[in-house]
Each structure stands twice: as structure tokens, then as C-alpha cells.
């Protein structure tokens, strides 16, 4: 079981991801915008952070930049979920400090699989 943060402004998508990951036994926190996401990251230690790109207040990109500037959060794993799926967008996200990228619309099962890989990779 892993502790995961989901930052996503669309309520339905939050529901989709939370339901799916809770079924897998993970502990999920939810944030509705960039600001909230940053607050929660400051207060908690997450095994993985899932970030939407287009969010109010701070975009996913801005959140990554702020998190990477926190001394104790340099290595926390971040996955960006974005509808902006072009190569250039993806590269920008990775350059900014995200570890993984998944394009919208994504399959919940694929997401689960990706997360398992990531978390297992960590265990190994």
C-alpha cells in the first residue's frame, strides 16, 4: 500500500482515479487545484504524486517547479497526467522535473499498472 496524492480539478476524473486506486488498496489524498496540492505535499510524505496539467491557481508545471525547490522533496516521485500530449509538452514536463507522464484520456487499468511498476521499481 502506498500513499498517493492526486491533484485534479475535474471532480469526475478525481472520482475515477480515486476509486480505481482505492480498489488496489492505496491511500489517496485529493487536491482540487495547484495551491492545495502544494500545501498537501508540504504536510505529507507521498510515495507518488499524480498531477493534472491544467489546474486553477498553479498549473501542474508550476507545482512541479515549486516542489522540486523544496529541499526535502527533491526526490519525491511525480507523474503528470495531461491532455497536452504532444512530444514538446511531454518533454517540457519531464524537463521541469516530473518523473513520469501519462496522456489523457488514460485507461484506469493502465494507470494502475504504471503505478505498480513505479512502486515496485522503488521496492527493488
Amino acid at each position: 500500500m502506498a500513499k498517493i496524492l492526486l491533484a485534479e480539478d475535474e471532480e469526475v476524473l478525481r472520482m475515477l482515479v480515486v476509486d480505481t486506486l482505492e480498489d488496489e488498496g492505496h491511500d489517496i489524498d485529493e487536491a482540487c487545484d495547484g495551491e492545495e496540492a502544494i500545501e498537501m505535499i508540504k504536510q505529507n510524505d507521498y510515495d507518488l504524486i499524480l498531477l493534472d496539467y491544467m489546474m486553477p491557481i498553479y498549473t501542474g508545471l508550476e507545482v512541479i517547479q515549486q516542489v522540486r525547490n523544496m529541499p526535502d522533496k527533491k526526490h519525491v516521485k511525480i507523474m503528470m497526467l495531461s491532455a497536452k500530449s504532444q512530444q514538446a509538452d511531454q518533454q517540457r514536463v519531464l524537463d521541469a522535473g516530473a518523473d513520469y507522464f501519462m496522456a489523457k484520456p488514460y485507461s484506469p487499468l493502465e494507470l494502475v499498472q504504471r503505478i505498480e511498476e513505479i512502486l515496485h521499481g522503488e521496492d527493488a
Binding site: L16, D23, M54, K104, P105, S107, L109
Partner: peptide, 25 residues
Amino acid sequence: VSTVSHELRTPLSSVLGFTELMLTK
């Protein structure tokens, strides 16, 4: 174009996601 693509993908994500859950679980 970029905005439309984003606006369309969001509801599509939900439709596809939940449909997949219902089909596989």
C-alpha cells in the same frame, strides 16, 4: 485547437475510464 483538445479530452477520459472499469471489474 489546444484548448478544444483539452476540453474534449476531459469528459472523454471519464467516459472511457468508467466504461473500462465497468467492463473489466
